[in-house]
Design a binder for these strands. Structure first.
Lengths: 227, 227
DNA sequence: GTGGCTGATTGATCAGTATCAAATCCCCCA
DNA sequence: TGGGGGATTTGATACTGATCAATCAGCCAC
């Protein structure tokens, strides 16, 4: 775990385009960025654990971070997967003071860390930052509500189809996309065991979906929409 | 559907204790309340529908409101159930401009309606209101994240046990609670068909849970925690 | 190139829950 | 207090996805 104040150009670009920071004016931006710390983590590293005191929230600059909860027997359930540009745990700013789930890098990752108390103080006085926080938390809420609806309404192949469609250009009859992470991570996002994801992919073959490694080819996007 | 500016004492008390309004100072409170409208709705009445333009958000003063999404075949999946004091759709203030799910009263209900644009204007200038919004949306986010984890980690009887425990006083070896709504609504909240809820209750009999109508008696709270 | 490791697929089985149908219960109101 | 009708329970069955085990594929280091 390497911690520094330095920021690569690439990471800086991601940070500036992150929904949480994108709409901010210069002074707010400078104040926020002056208080953040950057760290680079190896794969499978815990960023924070359920029950720990919530001292900071994070923005993913590179890699993917998995938020999940554990059952008593040690089974894991993914709650959210954060991609570059996403923040996480920022919704604890004005409510709980303890993390409610675990966060683990799914692969080597770079994160920006924001001290809760410092941002809380900023947000109190800067309506622009407050607004950015509302927008960030709202976006997460929309995502989790979608997740609940997907889990409850759709079967595994349908959820996989929805995911593929969400990453396809809206038009065109065929498409090819590349998964940005391992299939086991996608399985967790969709609430599936890896075996179930695999079977879902193979059941989508009959509607023209071909999978090779991380490459997914869709023969007929419209046909995929219908199941 | 009866719409008025009048507010019963009971409804007023609920409103003042609602998490969204509870922390506000007097001037913010007055401004917010001066722009809200009260309406009384019969059971099963749609408050808003997926796809409609998001012109307002609501606070439940009495009764329960079910947020749900429909599949193409007409199956329903509950996403959230709002009790007296809960707001809903307030997270669309600074993001989407279209409702993402349907809202329907589960029984006769009284709601306070807040105009989106008006509150948006207020929030821009009043950090106290912005903070209240962050807190309200954050609370919802915590709730939906819990919901995902529950769905994915626990079986039907476990989810029912969790629900019962969440409404039991923390101490004591036995307890008796009364469901504040129909069992079919609880089933939806837990992501179950009504039949599955019924079977879950009966499987909990062996750990000392007795159900008669809306009354649930728990013989041994601690025993319930262990499954 | 060739082990060796990790991740993915496939097969077999099983647990959990949805669904449909029928019987029963409960609650409200006349 | 006695229906009456919606809500709930119960039974039978089918289906979905989890789990366990074994095989396979890809990738890296040597």
């Amino acid at each position: 775990m390497n911690s520094s104040l330095k920021l690569s150009n690439r990471d800086r670009a991601v940070l500036m385009k992150a929904p949480f920071l994108a709409g901010l004016g210069n002074s707010a931006l400078v104040r926020l960025m002056s208080m953040m710390t950057i760290s680079t983590l190896p794969a499978r590293k815990f960023v924070l654990r359920e029950g720990e005191s919530a001292d900071a929230f994070y923005c993913v600059l590179n890699g993917y971070v998995r938020l999940f909860r554990l059952s008593r027997e040690g089974r894991e359930a993914d709650i959210m997967v954060c991609a570059p540009g996403d923040t996480f745990a920022e919704h604890l700013l004005f409510s709980e003071n303890v993390y409610r789930c675990n966060a683990q890098t799914a692969e080597p990752a770079t994160l920006a860390r924001f001290d809760m108390q410092a941002v809380r103080d900023l947000a109190q006085h800067d309506p622009e930052i407050a607004k950015a926080l509302i927008a960030a938390v709202s976006r997460h809420l929309v995502g989790t509500m979608d997740c609940i609806a997907n889990d409850r309404l759709f079967t595994a192949p349908q959820r996989v189809a929805n995911y593929i469609l969400s990453r396809c250009p809206a038009d065109g009859s065929s498409a090819s996309i590349r998964l940005p992470f391992q299939k086991s991570l996608l399985a967790g996002m969709l609430g599936l065991a890896p075996e179930a994801l695999s079977r879902a992919f193979s059941s989508l073959r009959r509607v023209g979906v071909t999978v090779r490694g991380r490459i997914i080819q869709v023969g007929d996007v419209q046909a995929l929409r219908n199941i």
